Lab assay of single mutants.
Amino acid sequence: QAPETKIVDKSRVACDGGEGALGHPRVWLQIPEDTGWVECPYCDCKYVLKGSKADAL
């Protein structure tokens, strides 16, 4: 199944896999201003900063 994409309001987000005990260790991710998105290294969930150029795609 394809990784999930989430639109977020802040450039710093936490990801834990979203499945409680079945998820992964919580990691904090920083969305770079130049790209407007970041992917979780564990679950490949893509976080897109709302209003960024990546959000316009």
Rank of each mutant, 00 (worst) to 15 (best):
P32D: 11
Y42G: 03
K10E: 11
D44L: 15
Y47A: 04
G51R: 01
E39S: 13
A14Q: 07
K50I: 07
S52E: 08
L49M: 07
V13A: 01
C40D: 08
A2G: 12
K46S: 04
E33Q: 11
V48S: 00
Q30W: 13
C40V: 09
C40G: 07
C40N: 07
D16F: 12
V38F: 01
L22I: 04
G18K: 10
V8Y: 04
D34R: 08
D55E: 08
A2P: 12
K10Q: 11
D16E: 13
A56N: 14
A21N: 11
D55I: 01
G20E: 05
T35V: 12
E4P: 14
A2Y: 13
R26C: 07
V38Q: 01
E19D: 10
G17T: 02
Y42W: 10
C43Q: 00
K6W: 09
E39F: 14
V38L: 04
Q30I: 13
G18Y: 06
P41N: 03
C45Q: 15
K10V: 13
G18V: 05
C43T: 01
C43Y: 02
C43S: 01
T5N: 06
L29T: 02
L29F: 03
L22K: 13
E33F: 11
K46P: 01
V38S: 01
H24S: 02
S11Y: 10
T35E: 07
G18R: 09
E19Y: 11
W37C: 01
G20N: 05
K6S: 08
Q1F: 13
D16V: 12
G23Q: 13
Q1C: 15
G36A: 03
D34C: 08
G18D: 04
V38C: 00
I7Q: 03
K46Y: 07
T35P: 10
R26V: 07
W28G: 00
Y42S: 09
V13K: 02
V27H: 01
K6P: 03
C45V: 15
D44Q: 15
A56G: 10
G18F: 07
D9Y: 14
C43H: 02
P32G: 04
K50C: 14
S52L: 03
L49P: 14
E33W: 10
A54P: 04
V27Q: 01
K53R: 09
C45P: 00
S11N: 10
L22Q: 10
I7E: 05
A2M: 14
R12V: 13
P25F: 10
V27M: 04
A54W: 00
V27W: 03
D34G: 07
C15W: 00
S52W: 01
Q1P: 11
L22G: 08
G23M: 11
E39A: 13
D55K: 00
